[in-house]
Simulated assay, not measured.
Amino acid sequence: MEDILKLDFWEMIIRTTMTFIVLLILARFMGKKQISQLTFFHYVTGITIGSIAADIAGESKMPFLDGLVAMVWWAVLTILTNYLAFKSKKARAFLDDKPTIIIREGKLMKKSMEKTRLHLNDLSMMLREQSIFSIKDVHYAILETNGQLSVMKKSDQEPATKKDVKAPAPPPKFIPTEIISDYKLIPENLEELNLTEEWLKEELIKQGIGHISQVFYAEVQSDGTLHVDMGEG
């Protein structure tokens, strides 16, 4: 009986050590993301891989190689979906969803809140976490794919700037919005801003750029100007 207990103990030590090493290698290949950046898909995937690893280490009924193959294959599937999401905007939207505008120009978007199942109490709490205690102080609020709320305050609510020195505080013309990403135009964003491709081409020409395909990333700023990044390296 004592020999069997010893065997089980050392078997557990070996299984745990091997699982730890494999998990460490897989984590290295799966890429770097902070916890706050994880979407629901990545969060569930991480929990699943951890659960498989725990079963391999602590459950003697699970054949070691079978469990190891399951864990490695799950990680491979995750890497493949991440690669697909990196290459395809449609796949990225399917896997990670899209950011949702919750407050637009100071007005709550009821349908967006219903779609994301976000209650007013939850929204108020998320705003308070950013030291915003009144919805009326918010010009735009966007629920990101990781569940975090990004907020643009109204111009006259920015700390110690225009309001304090009694300077004019006109509302921003636009919410900063990407219109070119990875050398590709995002027509729906351009349409959302009521801008045209002709306008974009004229703005690019002003900056000495002849074609959209030359631009890695472009974003319309709140004052209507165009920020362009050609993508170095």
Rank of each mutant, 00 (worst) to 15 (best):
1 M>A: 12
2 E>R: 09
3 D>R: 14
13 I>Q: 05
15 R>N: 12
16 T>Y: 07
22 V>Q: 04
27 A>K: 07
33 K>Y: 13
37 Q>F: 05
39 T>N: 15
41 F>L: 09
43 Y>C: 12
43 Y>W: 14
46 G>M: 10
47 I>V: 13
48 T>Y: 11
60 S>P: 02
62 M>K: 12
62 M>F: 08
64 F>Y: 13
68 L>F: 10
68 L>I: 15
69 V>H: 10
70 A>I: 11
71 M>H: 06
74 W>M: 15
86 F>I: 01
87 K>M: 07
89 K>P: 02
91 A>N: 05
92 R>A: 15
94 F>C: 09
94 F>S: 10
95 L>W: 07
97 D>C: 13
99 P>W: 02
99 P>E: 01
105 E>L: 11
108 L>K: 01
110 K>P: 01
110 K>I: 04
114 E>D: 12
115 K>L: 13
115 K>I: 04
116 T>N: 04
117 R>N: 08
121 N>L: 06
129 E>W: 10
131 S>Q: 10
132 I>V: 14
135 I>T: 15
135 I>C: 02
138 V>Q: 01
140 Y>I: 02
140 Y>K: 00
141 A>C: 11
147 G>D: 13
149 L>R: 10
149 L>E: 07
150 S>E: 03
151 V>E: 01
158 E>L: 08
159 P>E: 08
161 T>M: 05
163 K>W: 07
164 D>N: 06
166 K>M: 05
166 K>A: 11
173 K>P: 00
175 I>G: 00
175 I>T: 04
178 E>I: 10
180 I>E: 01
180 I>L: 04
182 D>N: 15
184 K>C: 10
184 K>T: 01
189 N>P: 09
189 N>L: 00
190 L>V: 01
192 E>K: 00
192 E>V: 00
193 L>F: 06
194 N>M: 07
196 T>R: 08
196 T>Y: 07
198 E>T: 13
199 W>R: 01
199 W>N: 06
199 W>I: 03
204 L>Y: 03
205 I>Q: 09
206 K>S: 11
213 S>E: 13
213 S>L: 06
215 V>M: 02
215 V>D: 00
220 V>S: 02
221 Q>T: 00
222 S>R: 05
222 S>Y: 06
224 G>R: 06
224 G>E: 04
227 H>N: 09
229 D>Y: 14
230 M>N: 06
230 M>W: 06
